[in-house]
Amino acid sequence: MLRKLNIRWVPVLFLLPSVICYVMFKYYPLMNMAYISFFDYSIVNPPGKFIGFANYTEFLKSTTFWQAISNTFIFFGLYLVLTFWIPIVQALFLYDIRRGNAFFRFMYQLPTIMPLVGGVLVWKWMYNPDFGLLNYWLDFVGLGPYLWLNDATMTKLAIVLPAVFAGNGIALLLYYSALKSIPTEILEAAKMDGAGPWRRMWTMLLPNIKFIIVIQFVAFMSSVLLAYDHIYIMTQGGPAGSTTVVSMLVVNSAFQQSRFGISGAVSVFMFIVIALLTIIQNKISAEKD
């Protein structure tokens, strides 16, 4: 006998617009992208000729693609090592600051209202080898001048550097909020039991904000692996392809070479890579729990 369905219609009705939007603007483009990746896409008579996995085999054989993949993961490594932990540490310090706490929170948030393009252009100007501020300062301490955007290795670092100094204010706020949600009684009790600051941090604070760190890591991973705008503004993918990342390849294939099928295939590949990495990450953190 079928059990009578007991549907609560009010939440469903409230959810419906967002679900429709998600399907229309997220799932539909995603599926369409997967669909066109199997065609030699014709702009004038879409979708063109069905070619199966030929687009996939073509880009997998292309050295340009593998250089872009390599660049993308080098950027991922650089961002992970140089930037991801910074808002966590900042939040931990901020948590212990009693006087002027609101001022510091405000100061950390202030740069987030600065438009990305403006920030990147300021850094680009600072990197100028002739009249940039960075070389001018380095000159005072007997270093430089460096050709920040003229060297394949240095350019990658130059792109990541702004994120080191003007970190992620929103992430800081999330970590800080998570820390504030830890009951103070537990921390006080730990203190009374003789737990020092390091012990409290490793055994109480960090484990309690782990769920936020995991969520932030997933968001961080997809944002870095799909990064485009700031890299494009800084170097347009150069010099000599040293900062061409996969998302740039997707745009170039579609809009410069009119090869939308290849563009779709590369996008699907990246979707799968990010999905797999997210699953692995979730599995590892679930096992640790």
Binding site: V23, Y27, Y28, L30, M31, N32, A34, Y35, I43, V44, N45, P46, P47
Partner: peptide, 24 residues
């Protein structure tokens, strides 16, 4: 169901590049 609907919509749009009925 969501994937089927999306796929259906994608398939429906397969030949929507024209902006009028005049062909090429």
């Amino acid at each position: 169901l969501t994937l089927v609907v999306s796929l259906f919509m994608a398939a429906c749009s397969g030949n929507n590049g024209g902006n009028n009925g005049s062909g090429n």
